[in-house]
């Protein structure tokens, strides 16, 4: 499955932020979004995930193929790692959470309450959720925040594994993850006055 965006204009609160953005991401490739804070990376990722409608243009495939990972993981602290994962797996019609636990090295933490996880472990749990969605396109917003160098390296390995399986990742990040893919600087696409018309 190839991710295609055509002439995409996205924005928030009636104000376009990025205009006329077009790109194609082939299976097995990553797209790294770069740009200063407030440049529209999050808005673009939310639009790709179907959380908000594009002002103009279109995205293929639709949001049902996209797994979104925001700043926060959406994990309930009062539930264990396994319970959290099972909940999301159930929602997406996936039964077995073992592969996801194994892939992110969470087996030993299975019965730990999510609120007792360290920042890095919590992030791994959040990423394991991406696996149980069974969706091939990952849209990740600053996934390495709160990860140290070691865990960042592990994260990069995990994304590499996803890409090797024919997946796609669109990641907004400031650091170099050494992934196989292109980098898109969103600054040139900043919406101008004409986009408001």
């Amino acid at each position: 499955m190839t991710l295609v965006a055509r002439e995409l204009t996205v924005g928030r609160g009636g104000l376009p932020i990025l205009a006329r953005l077009s790109f194609t991401v082939e299976p097995g490739r990553a797209l790294i979004l770069r740009g200063p804070n407030g440049s529209g990376k999050t808005t673009l990722l939310r639009t790709l995930s179907g959380l908000q409608a594009p002002y103009e243009g279109e995205v293929e495939p639709g949001p049902e193929a996209v797994a979104y990972g925001g700043h926060r993981d959406g994990m309930k602290g009062q539930m264990t790692v396994a319970e959290n994962l099972s909940f999301w797996a159930g929602l997406h019609g996936v039964r077995d959470i073992e592969p996801a636990l194994r892939a992110f090295d969470l087996q030993r933490l299975e019965d730990r309450l999510a609120q007792h996880l360290s920042a890095g472990q919590g992030r791994r749990l959040g990423l394991a959720r991406l696996l149980v969605t069974g969706r091939s396109i990952w849209c990740l917003d600053e996934p390495t925040v709160s990860l140290d160098a070691e865990n960042t390296g592990r994260f990069a390995d995990m994304v590499r594994g996803h890409l090797a399986g024919g997946g796609i990742a669109v990641i907004a990040t400031h650091i170099d993850l050494g992934l196989d893919g292109d980098t898109l600087d969103v600054r040139p696409y900043k919406a101008t006055l004409e986009a408001l018309e």
Binding site: G14, L15, K190, A191, T192, L193, L196
Partner: peptide, 12 residues
């Protein structure tokens, strides 16, 4: 409101 938005965009 629209004018202010334009101004903000022109400034930025």
């Amino acid at each position: 409101h629209a004018l202010r938005l334009r101004e903000r965009m022109a400034d930025a």
